[in-house]
């Protein structure tokens, strides 16, 4: 089935000239650095509801970066990451139900739950590639949605509220500013991990798999196992983001598991640019910004979003982060 193997083509323009590469390398972080600085200063600059939007943007951005990571490294288009996002959130709910309040315990549990689920789902889904993989990840995520939303103890189709935000080592996270910084710190940790893995032999092999899996097999790589590793890492990060989403909303509902979340994460990842480490964050922030702006005028804001997505896919092939970087005069990171 040759036609199943339509590889994801990424437009990576890396200057080959060494001098240009060094200059580009320094400048290429400019867009990222600006954004991180903006996020760090936000609590001092903006009103609280804008800060809240940015916190939310970082949470979804974290998940979107994880989704983008397995596209860039592994060529896997997952349409089921809502499952790991939601499972992370529900882990927080369940942990609170059994009386835990320590985030340093609960968040790792959420990460483990999502990772375990992705290990099972990933090893089944990775028996196929391409289109089938997309459909199967969507299918299994829908199964998770149905199962969780029919458990009455977890609030069924309506979901349940959390009593309060969990604490870190006894320090309360009730303050939105403090929570904002915790999310930012975790986001930076995630970027460090993803960046490191991306430059490792594993990351290189995964990027190779996206370009030409058959070749990587012929070099002796167990491609399926490497892809599964990346898939689980990505799901674990998405689970962490889900846990943070639960803490942010203080409410957990099947809406977090809904397939549309999977689609939105993919849109964020590609809108920001999957070639870029932080593309998902850019995409998430822009999308949430658009949501806030458009819903000023109409409650049917998705009606505008649909065409925007279509136009972006058809005409903006690189994504925002790389485009921004070009504007700032840098190469790619």
């Amino acid at each position: 089935m040759r036609h199943l193997e339509k590889p994801v083509v990424l437009d990576l323009q890396r200057p080959t000239n060494v001098a240009a590469r060094i200059v580009g390398g320094v400048r290429s972080y400019a867009a990222n650095a600006l954004l991180v600085a903006l996020l760090a200063l936000a609590p001092f600059l903006f009103e609280s509801h804008i800060v809240g939007s940015l916190t939310r943007g970082m949470i979804y951005g974290m998940a979107a970066c994880a989704v983008g990571f397995i596209i860039r490294c592994g060529g896997m288009v997952s349409f089921g990451h809502a499952a790991y996002f939601g499972l992370g959130a529900y882990s927080v709910l369940i942990a609170q139900k059994i009386g835990l309040t320590e985030a340093l315990l609960i968040w790792p549990i959420a990460v483990l739950v999502s990772a375990a689920a992705s290990l099972a789902i990933g090893s089944l889904s990775l028996r196929t590639r391409g289109v089938s993989f997309i459909m199967i990840t969507l299918g299994f995520a829908q199964m998770v949605y149905f199962v969780i939303s029919s458990v009455q103890g977890l609030g069924g189709a309506d979901g349940l509220g959390l009593q309060a935000r969990n604490q870190i080592g006894g320090v309360s996270l009730e303050s939105p500013t403090r929570f904002h910084f915790v999310v930012l710190a975790l986001l930076l940790v995630v970027f460090c991990v993803l960046s490191r893995v991306g430059r490792s032999p594993l990351g290189m092999a995964l990027a190779g798999i996206r370009q030409n899996e058959r070749r990587l097999k012929a070099l002796g790589y167990n491609t399926t196992r490497l892809q599964l590793t990346a898939f689980v890492l990505s799901a674990a990060i998405t689970g962490l983001a889900g846990a943070l989403a639960a803490e942010f909303y203080l409410y957990v509902s099947p809406g977090l598991l809904h397939w549309i979340v999977s689609g939105e994460l993919l849109v964020m990842a590609t809108l920001g640019g999957v070639t870029a480490l932080m593309g998902g964050l850019f995409g998430a922030l822009v999308l949430l910004l658009a949501e806030v702006l458009i819903s000023e005028f109409t409650t049917y804001w998705r009606m505008a979003l649909g065409p925007v997505v279509i136009v972006a896919v058809l005409y903006l092939r690189q994504g925002l982060q790389p485009a921004l970087q070009k504007m700032l005069g840098g190469g790619r990171d």
Partner: peptide
């Protein structure tokens, strides 16, 4: 790519 098809 299938990714573009899915998104659009």
């Amino acid at each position: 790519s299938h990714l573009d098809q899915v998104l659009a």
